[in-house]
Design a protein around this nucleic acid. Structure first.
Lengths: 138, 138
DNA sequence: CCTTACGTTTACGTAAACGTAAGGGTAGGG
DNA sequence: CCCTACCCTTACGTTTACGTAAACGTAAGG
């Protein structure tokens, strides 16, 4: 190992369109998330430079979207992951936020499970119906 | 029991504002759902008359909203419950819809569960932090 | 008869989450 | 040097899911 080589590898970075393609978004959308404070990429001149940290955040953002959260809701959620450097009153606030969100997620969990039960009932009902009609291929 | 009494009780009905209060919606919202084809109440003169069937549909609508579905998505979902009187091609379509929706719901289930794990981690992390700082009351 | 409380329709307003176009900068390749 | 392919900002357009206001009908109560 040559002298003076950095201990940590040079961090891998991404352009906006690389991120866009990876997450099947448009650059416009990613800039929008920045406007809303969900991402804060470094700048090189005018260009945005994204790191694996932004990548991770985008994964959380996409998950939040699949759960039907609003962008503002996702922002609050992301803030919860930044607990490290918070003072006591701020941490109390975060704790309450986290617990509130846990409550609604537990409701959502029940809703998803019940809906899955309903849909599977419907599915077998339809399959039976089709079977009787002689349209046998499930 | 006097002669000629109806076998089935007179069906209980609701006004729009009764439904609105029960589900914490506004009448405007309920009329909107009608515009979008989610509800089709009977009319008495000009007034809408809702039955327990509409009540049940509204419960499903609210669940769909908690799951982050769009109104159009909820409409498709409600249609699945109306399988009874469908012809074979229509039933094939419904079957595919149901299965698609099951797939995304199973993804949503995983998302909810993972997010709950994350949030509970964060919660205990914050609690520990507060404990160390002497702010002991959990 | 007048007010209050409900219901109705029609229609414009609004917030959220982007899409889309206009106009311009920069780096590399032929 | 020009073209292509990116990047940027600014700003107006669009869809969804209602809110809100106007203008009116009707039945009950004082």
């Amino acid at each position: 190992m040559p002298d003076g080589a950095p201990v940590t590898a040079v961090e891998e970075t991404y352009t906006i369109s690389q991120l866009a393609e990876a997450f099947e978004l448009t650059p416009r959308t990613i800039r929008y998330y920045e406007d809303e404070g969900l991402l804060t990429p470094r700048r090189e001149g005018q260009q945005r430079v994204y790191t694996h940290r932004d990548w991770a955040r985008l994964k959380l953002i996409m998950r939040g979207k699949r759960l039907g959260f609003t962008i503002a809701g996702i922002k609050d959620f992301l803030d919860l992951y930044e607990v490290g450097d918070a003072q006591v009153p701020q941490m109390r606030f975060l704790l309450k936020s986290a617990r509130d969100r846990i409550t609604t997620l537990e409701q959502q969990l029940r809703d998803v499970q019940q809906t899955l039960v309903d849909l599977k009932d419907i599915e077998s009902l339809v399959v039976d119906h089709l079977a009787k009609k002689g349209a046998l291929d499930v």
